Amino acid sequence: MNSKRIHFIIAGLFIVFAAVQYNDPDPWLWILIYGAVALVAIVKVYFSQVNFTPLILTLLLILLFYTFTFIPSVLDFFESSNKSDLVGKMKAEDPWIEGTREFGGLLIAIIALNYLKRSKIN
């Protein structure tokens, strides 16, 4: 599969991720995060001659530092007796559920941005 298609797949997925944030406690933040990843994926295809590495590295650093704020929630998740609550109901009844989900979303965004940083458009 060529890198342009992968970029468009990443963009499509992150547009969907952004679109389903309407019921999140902080929807605009997550729409911005996921939208930024989608935008980078699309813009990198159409402006392949531009070096996006500084932008992508900046986004990676911001998301990485933000990820650290959710480590206590992830640790609480590992200490929890009922792990199925994480993927069960969409309403977070325990405080660690939302934080662990957001940690996972940030990891997915970081992985995608890392791919976009390394990819070459053919």
Rank of each mutant, 00 (worst) to 15 (best):
A38M: 09
N51I: 10
S80H: 05
A41T: 10
V87P: 00
V20A: 06
M1T: 14
S3V: 14
W28L: 15
A92N: 12
L29M: 09
K83N: 10
F52P: 04
S119K: 02
Y46V: 15
G105C: 14
N2T: 11
K44T: 13
L32R: 07
I10Q: 05
D94M: 08
F8G: 03
N51Y: 04
N114L: 10
H7L: 11
Y66W: 15
I111R: 02
Y34E: 08
K91T: 15
G105N: 11
N51S: 10
L64W: 12
V16D: 10
D94H: 08
M1L: 13
S80N: 11
F47H: 14
I33D: 03
D26Y: 05
A112H: 01
N122P: 15
I108S: 06
W28I: 11
I110V: 15
N82S: 11
S73P: 00
G105I: 09
E102C: 03
V74L: 10
T58D: 00
W96V: 04
L75W: 12
V43M: 05
F70E: 03
N82C: 03
Y34F: 15
K4R: 13
F78T: 15
V74K: 01
P25H: 08
Q49I: 13
A92S: 12
A11Q: 10
V50M: 04
N51T: 15
S80V: 08
A109Q: 06
L107M: 14
I121N: 07
S80P: 04
K4Y: 09
